[in-house]
Design a protein around this nucleic acid. Structure first.
Lengths: 342, 342
DNA sequence: TTGAAAGCGCTAACAG
DNA sequence: CTGTTAGCGCTTTCAA
């Protein structure tokens, strides 16, 4: 493991200055009037000595790292991992790298991670926040590093944000269920309940009920804790299905659906015979089950892409975006689990 | 967005030296004999001025970034995203961050990413490589940054590596199928065929056939291209199922299984009636289908954890590990898709 | 055409 | 107990 060669090394070996070498290697040789001859010599020697630029030094000098931080609740959740992939690809085009972090919906942890990223001098952050208010985030990001929110927005409408039109998705889905004859529709969600994504889905659900003259029933609105979701879903559903008989379940995301399907499997609950089912998010499973599952697909790739575009905008000239909140309409996939009932 | 406060600022405002401040803030004040009084003053002022350490400068000085790079073929593949999560959690304990990259099994791209990470001075890398030989990687990592391979090893047995015992998993799974009466077992894989993971699984399959006196049939060994897998799997299977009738399919990973299940769904192929099925990897889908799918579960969390331990080892004293290659035994989940046939 | 020097913010060796 | 100095590797005035 030999010592790395630096600008100085190659400058010295050529009896020129670091300045010159730096210019040439950054492709700014010509415009600074370095002779073609010298330029070629520099480049040749750089290759010869196997020069590797030190981005750290470069970043320190330039005040930018070409790295952005991405904070989500769990990178192994397929919804997020697909967004991350899209973000990665979009950023690659602009030569940015990605540091990823998971919060497990833990506000404390999120705070620490934000600080961390700030210390690391990331040029920007993309955050799917668990916090309840913009002030909470601003309190952490003191340096004014730009950030854009994804999936969940906060109280300040001027925060750049990209996500799904959750209200619309839930409204359509619920309306569809109602039209197909379902009346006692459970809405299965998880904590924390202040997340805008979940709140908007709930609003869409309630509005759809209202518009179809169905009275909401509080007992059908379930919020399980985030941790140990599977077990909590099981218990809640067991309780619900043992007494009053709901006729459909609307799961607010993919992990809740998985938990619910598990419950149905164990309890031998037939879909849509005994209960209808519809879900937010669209995962492979939904179209591969023998009874395919009706769902609202979020445009994950689009969310990732747009978030990057917005962030890069924000990095170049903060606060310049025309449109602060971008809500991408979801796509309703009507399948067999929500078949018409009498 | 006010200018950030640096060590110098707080030193100046207190009429002490940067050195002192640096020591105190790094908790090395006491051991360097800074008076308690001064220490407290420094800490108070740091808080007051809202001091945020600049890790970039720190890293440049120290020659370490506390960041490691993780390269996989696709971070949105659940197998990898779970490993990533485990890696993230394990690294967090040692205050390391994670830069993630996807290669799409593209050797060129992998090369560029490795270089990238090297320029960024990551302290180490965890790589699920698509390359065919260790030299190819070493050619990229000139600086001697330590790395550990996951999921796939290379020709050099001294390369630190953590993965599943793929041979064993495939051997057991195939043996199980044979014992349950299956004889014409398709093995469905994808390119590139030099990946040790896939090669070992194939070896396990062949050995199991051999040990049970079944002659391997080349027509049953399928390698589809990595890109557009779904379509290729469909076409290959359509071809296969139209002529000679295989009696089981062994999918070498989760994405191939998804593609195959899709095929079965579209073609109305009954499992296990018309064909048995078994798969490497274990995904939610497999236990939620009405006919549950027999699979070999890889210990993803364990792989991530061990990779981190190995890498940290390697960072502290390179080449010191007792055991270079760690092969974690997989777990066979026997389910309904491989039921006994006559 | 080219170079000298300053400085990004931090830490460590060495002196007091 | 505390400070001085040097330097990590790079870019960027400003000067020649």
């Amino acid at each position: 493991m030999k010592k790395k060669t630096s600008l100085a090394d190659i400058a010295q070996s050529l009896n020129v200055s670091k300045t010159l070498v730096s210019m040439v290697l950054n492709g700014r040789g010509e415009e600074n009037g370095i002779s073609k001859d010298t330029r070629e010599k520099v480049i040749a020697r750089a290759k010869e000595l196997n020069y590797q630029p030190n981005m750290l030094a470069r970043s320190l000098r330039l005040g930018k790292t070409n790295t952005i931080g991405l904070i989500v609740s769990d990178i192994s959740n397929p919804f997020f991992s697909k967004i991350i992939r899209a973000v990665e690809d979009a950023l690659a085009e602009y030569d940015y790298n990605l540091i990823v972090c998971s919060t497990d919906e833990d506000v404390e942890k999120e705070g620490r991670l934000i600080k961390m990223l700030e210390y690391k001098q990331v040029d920007g952050m993309i955050i799917s926040t668990s916090m309840a208010s913009e002030t909470d985030i601003r309190k952490k990001i003191r340096s004014g590093i730009p950030f854009v929110l994804i999936d969940r927005y906060l109280d300040n409408p001027d925060n750049p944000y990209v996500g799904t039109d959750n209200y619309l998705g839930a409204y359509r889905l619920t309306s569809h269920l109602i039209k197909n004859g379902y009346k006692k529709i459970v809405i299965l969600s998880h904590q924390p309940t202040h997340l805008s994504s979940l709140k908007d889905r709930k609003k869409g659900y309630l509005q759809a009920l209202k518009d179809h003259k169905i009275n909401p029933d509080d007992r059908l609105i379930i919020d399980v804790p985030f941790q140990n979701r599977d077990r909590h879903v099981f218990e809640a559903m067991e309780h619900l299905f043992s007494e009053g008989e709901p006729d459909a379940v609307f799961c607010l995301n993919n992990s809740l659906s998985l938990a619910f399907l598990d419950f149905c499997k164990q309890k031998n609950i037939n879909i849509p015979g005994r209960t209808g089912l519809a879900s937010f998010d669209d995962i492979d499973l939904f179209r591969l089950l023998p009874v395919t599952v009706t769902s609202v697909r979020q445009e994950v790739t689009e969310i990732g892409k747009q978030a990057v575009i917005k962030l890069l905008h924000e990095i170049r000239k903060p606060g310049s975006a025309e449109e602060k909140r971008v809500q991408i309409p979801p796509i309703l996939h009507i399948r067999e689990s929500s078949q018409k009932i009498s």
